[in-house]
Design a protein around this nucleic acid. Sequence first.
DNA 1: TCGTTATTGAGAGCGGCGCTCTCGATGGAG
DNA 2: CTCCATCGAGAGCGCCGCTCTCAATAACGA
Lengths: 249, 249
Amino acid sequence: MLTKVVPAPYGVHNGGMATKATTPRQRARQQTIRDIKRIARRQLATEGTGALSLRAIARELGIVSSAIYRYVPSRDELLTMLIVDAYDGLGEAVEKAEAKIGRGDHSGRWAAIGRAVRQWAVTHPEEYGLIYGSPVPGYKAPPERTVGPGSRVSLLILRLVTDAHAAGEIRPPGRADAVPAAVAERFPELRAQLATDLSDDLIVRLLLAWTSVFGLVSFELGGQYVGVVDDTAAHFDHQLAVLGRDLGL
Amino acid sequence: MLTKVVPAPYGVHNGGMATKATTPRQRARQQTIRDIKRIARRQLATEGTGALSLRAIARELGIVSSAIYRYVPSRDELLTMLIVDAYDGLGEAVEKAEAKIGRGDHSGRWAAIGRAVRQWAVTHPEEYGLIYGSPVPGYKAPPERTVGPGSRVSLLILRLVTDAHAAGEIRPPGRADAVPAAVAERFPELRAQLATDLSDDLIVRLLLAWTSVFGLVSFELGGQYVGVVDDTAAHFDHQLAVLGRDLGL
DNA sequence: TCGTTATTGAGAGCGGCGCTCTCGATGGAG
DNA sequence: CTCCATCGAGAGCGCCGCTCTCAATAACGA
């Protein structure tokens, strides 16, 4: 009699929080899944993005290749877990760095956010590539599991700019641009959802600053600055300051 | 007696220029290589980055899998060819768009360059991902074959800003930043190599504008704007204008 | 015109991959 | 203490990149 068609309940990813494992079996299971992800991350870092192999992970784990499917449903699913972990890791690092700065020090918060993003990226280049590079297998990024953790950093910047705006400490250089209606179309509902009252121009400048930070990091990691800038950390800091000033901080 | 150890001379890639094939065999050979690259590009677009398969290409070409190696030395080498082609395609598209604008219309040239970059990227997303996304197999980007075609667009921007500077038509908002020595370390030799006389501050702002353009394109292609901006073309145009003004055009 | 020879395609094969299915062992829950 | 859910092992399927060998052939020089 077939009581179980689904082979096994796979561990649910939970953003790095330790799962409250009740039974010893569940605890061992979670540990194995953690090991798998750790080995996978190392493989990603040393062998490159496309070289992630379940068979190799099983080999390193001292387990036959078919047994790995007791813990991970497929290679793509493992990749998705790693992507969500990466989003969480980045978000947590940046939030922690920003939390250390006094709430009123807006440009300090901006610098802390930017630096934390870069720092995390250069420390975990393979994971950064996983989330901000081109996808690996055949496009597999289930949005329902990435939009949440993926927006943590942008929310941080939004709050910072909102705070600065409320404190009257934000003045973009030059006069404010008239933002075309087509661009600002979604801004009203965004303002409602995210509890902010920034002007169209400020939202646009915020988006640009945000985008540029990741452009800087991606270019550095992609080696686009070789021969042009040697001290990329100093370069990033400087550009961050320019961006902050252009943003009005 | 072994007269030939090397199996066959592989077609040399030459940036899209039609090879002056002398013998009919060489002509057929070049045509086959072109077909392989065409099919590979289609596979890349439809199946995703990691799904490029020499066996599948051979199948579609009506050829047994081993015969593909008469034309392409390896999967990685095919990837490199496609990357170089992509750089050339982007460079050519942008140069052509920029050439249509009057030399004195600096902001027009800036807009043309930016729009052409975005246009090419949204038309060839898989090729864009190939050159500005994270690498596919296990990091394979031979610099000696990519730096040349890869710098075509940045050279265009450099010339534009140099022209505008010479015409006295460039005034960044606010006062010029003092650029830290660590950042500007390489700038003197750069100025000599590239025949320009831009100030440190202008070079830094140029780098930022350049980086931001690609950040905008990458974010759009990566779907980072979903739910925030619908009309991404209008958004890009607007941000391009902001960037141009912050650059001083 | 006719051999000579370089080039080509086919076939078989190697190791590795993701993934499935079956089967015995075992250890925790009842 | 017993039962059965869970787990690891093994075999196997079709795919992949890549190599090697061998016959057919098409372009070339004599």
